[in-house]
């Protein structure tokens, strides 16, 4: 009964959404054609928002990767909020799983010797790859969020290979707090030096070089460390192994 009802509702929603979305052209959008309504002057300007980012983004932020420019520079405050949501979710997982960790201890079974050796060998390389992703976030695809996820997956490899392995919560907390402090501190420094929160106050340098784009690499490294430590904390809590 419930299945039939669910199926009927799902088909109805599919028809409505398909009829709504079939009128949006796929791939034929000319980004310069969007007209942006400026409410202050009560006029339609020719320059649309994405076209403005694509045209002026390199000049205004110094970042080669426009997605990074949007995430860290134009909408940096939004990213701060996202990182806060991530922090709250990680804290919630840790505090809920903490209640049950005393009851049941997982049966520890040793992994294969091949797996142990290989994970010992590969752990450093995976950490290095994650660090590469978030250090070069303003030049190549990637950034703090995927870099942090790669670092957390390297810790996941250690958890799978060594069932007794346990990341120190104190160190994770220190890394996460320092990263968060760096993010907020760079923002407040911009507020003092230039009058805007998260202002890009460092010199831009030459584009396509590593030390360019001002504060964007600093913030992305902080985001990478924060995301990595939080996702590691989530994996640690969900694994639920204590000795």
């Amino acid at each position: 009964m419930k299945r039939i009802l669910g199926g009927v509702i799902a088909v109805l929603i599919f028809i409505v959404l398909a009829l709504a979305f079939v009128h949006i052209p796929f791939g034929n959008i000319d980004l310069a054609e969007y007209h942006y309504y400026n409410p202050v002057d009560n006029e339609h300007t020719q320059d649309s928002v994405p076209q403005h980012y694509l045209d002026e983004g390199k000049k205004e932020t110094g970042s080669t990767n426009i997605v990074t420019a949007v995430v860290v520079d134009y909408r940096g405050f939004d990213t701060l909020g996202e990182v806060t949501v991530l922090f709250l979710a990680s804290t919630g997982v840790g505090s809920i799983m903490y209640i049950f960790e005393k009851e049941k201890r997982r049966k520890v079974r040793r992994a294969n010797a091949v797996v142990e050796t290989a994970s010992k060998l590969l752990f450093g390389f995976i950490i290095l790859f994650g660090a590469y992703i978030f250090v070069h976030g303003h030049l190549t695809p990637g950034g703090g969020f995927p870099g942090g996820a790669v670092i957390a997956s390297s810790f996941l490899l250690l958890y799978l290979a060594y069932p007794r392995f346990h990341a120190e919560h104190k160190n994770l907390n220190i890394a996460e707090s320092l990263a968060g402090l760096t993010f907020v501190g760079v923002g407040i420094l911009g507020l003092f030096l230039a009058g805007y929160f998260l202002y890009n106050f460092l010199p831009f340098g030459l584009p396509t070089y590593l030390f360019s784009a001002g504060v964007i690499p600093v913030i992305y490294v902080a985001v990478g460390v924060k995301v990595g430590s939080e996702l590691t904390g989530i994996v640690d809590a969900m694994m639920g192994v204590r000795e």
């Binding site: 997605v67 995430v71 996202e82 949501v85 991530l86 997982v93 939080e230 996702l231």
Partner: peptide, 10 residues
């Protein structure tokens, strides 16, 4: 980019 990370944590 940010929505994916938020999705997995939630």
């Amino acid at each position: 980019l940010t929505a994916i990370v938020i999705g997995v944590s939630v």
